[in-house]
Simulated scan of single mutants.
Amino acid sequence: MEKKDRIKKDISRESYLQTVIRRFKQHHLATVSLVILAVLVVAALLAPIIAPYNPDEIVGGFSKAPTAEHWLGTDQIGRDVLSRLLYATRISLLVGVLATAISTVIGVILGLIAGYFGGAADMIIMRFTDMVMSFPYILLVLVAASIFKPGLWSIILILGFVDWPGIARLVRGNVLSLRESNFIKSDLVAGMPLPYILFSEILPNTAAPILVYATSVLALSMLDEAALSFLGMGVQPPTASLGNMLNGAQSLTVLTKQPWLWIPSGLMIVVLVIAINFIGDALRDALDPNSGK
């Protein structure tokens, strides 16, 4: 009984950050996923140092099986698959992070404007948001990718400008409830400037759901990049990405007799997306103020 009382007392003294960390640690899969993601991110960032070969250099025979010299074998033109995998992970993470950042900034700004000002601004922004969301998502991405020249920055901008409506609606909903709260009304009475109210009072109080939603956008952006690069509409060779490394797996011969050409990149996509989704689920529970844990 005394032990339980001590635990309750310790919990009551926790700061908000300590509470979030404690709740996050209760999700064991998310904790493991965070470690795995951290290792993969570090490996990708250090690719120029730890990659055994230049990813674009022909260093062996064509489509050679894994050996002690080439741990994951070589691709169709003799490039080291492990080196290309490290650089491809770096590119895919870059696409995911930058596309998520762009869509989050656009969604947050439009959501703040629509939710706080209401009226005509809210109607115009939300009708435009509904119009964008009414198009099938993958069709919208494919059309945009076919219009613009394929490449790394094209795919980042396309995904960034397509993924914002969900964040905008989320922020608008939170702002609608926050603007009626007492602390916002007291700021208005005190004559606080609008930027202070929006970015110092309202935005921090809606940051938690934005962060959780951004993790799902991150995973989706990486999947979209892989799909578009697989179809030849995303990152273009010789630059390695997880999607264009899978491009060679369209052949039945490669699928059945040369699995080292597609399993590493396919497995990397699966691991990254699952890890990010587990982390997002744990963050949702950890940041929930109504959670009793």
Rank of each mutant, 00 (worst) to 15 (best):
G107R: 05
L231T: 07
L112F: 09
R172Y: 12
K149S: 15
N174A: 10
R284Q: 14
R179I: 11
Y213A: 15
L194S: 12
L178V: 14
T74L: 12
M222C: 10
E225C: 14
L242M: 10
V59M: 00
A190K: 03
I269G: 09
I125T: 07
T100S: 15
S12E: 13
D130F: 09
P289M: 05
I269A: 10
K293F: 15
M268A: 15
K9H: 08
H27F: 12
F161Q: 00
I167Q: 12
F161M: 14
G60E: 11
F135T: 04
I279R: 03
A43K: 02
M233D: 03
D130R: 02
K8P: 00
S251A: 10
R172T: 08
N247D: 10
L17V: 13
A47R: 00
P136W: 08
Y116T: 04
G151R: 00
T206F: 08
V41Y: 04
A208R: 06
S229C: 09
I197M: 10
W71R: 06
L29C: 04
Q26W: 11
A47W: 00
I58P: 08
Q76L: 08
S15W: 08
G232F: 01
A47T: 00
M131W: 08
W260G: 01
S216T: 14
P204R: 03
M192F: 05
W262P: 01
S33M: 07
A38Y: 04
V35G: 10
F135Q: 09
R284W: 02
L283H: 11
G115E: 07
S221D: 15
V143P: 01
P289T: 06
F62W: 06
S186G: 01
Y213G: 05
E180A: 12
K3A: 12
G292I: 15
I102R: 03
A47H: 03
H70P: 02
S186Q: 15
Y16G: 01
L159I: 13
M123P: 00
L140K: 09
S177F: 11
Q258H: 12
L178Y: 05
L223W: 11
